[in-house]
Amino acid sequence: MQATTTESSQTDISAHEFLAFTLGKEEYGIHILKVQELRGYEAPTRIANAPAFIKGVVNLRGIIVPIVDMRIKFNLGTPTYDQFTVVIILNIAGRVMGMVVDSVSDVITLSPEQVKPAPEMGTALNTDHLIGLGTIDERMLILVDIDKLMSSAELGLMDAIAA
Rank of each mutant, 00 (worst) to 15 (best):
A3D: 15
G77M: 05
D159F: 06
V68A: 11
D147F: 01
V35S: 02
M158T: 02
P51K: 04
Y81H: 01
D147Q: 03
M97C: 08
M1E: 04
M99R: 04
L149D: 09
P44H: 12
I63W: 07
Q83N: 10
G98H: 06
A48I: 11
T78G: 06
N75C: 04
E113C: 03
L110Q: 08
R46Q: 06
I92G: 07
N49R: 14
D12Q: 12
A160M: 12
F53R: 09
A20G: 11
A162H: 08
K73R: 15
I108T: 09
F53V: 03
L155R: 15
T80P: 01
D128S: 15
T5R: 12
V101L: 01
L33V: 13
I47L: 12
A15H: 13
V57W: 06
G98T: 05
V68D: 03
M99C: 10
G40S: 05
Q2R: 12
V65Y: 00
D12F: 13
T11E: 14
S105R: 14
L90V: 04
I89R: 05
Q114V: 03
I136T: 12
L143Q: 11
T22S: 15
D69T: 04
T45Q: 15
A50Y: 10
T78V: 10
L90M: 04
I131H: 10
I131T: 13
A15S: 15
T109M: 07
L90K: 00
A153V: 10
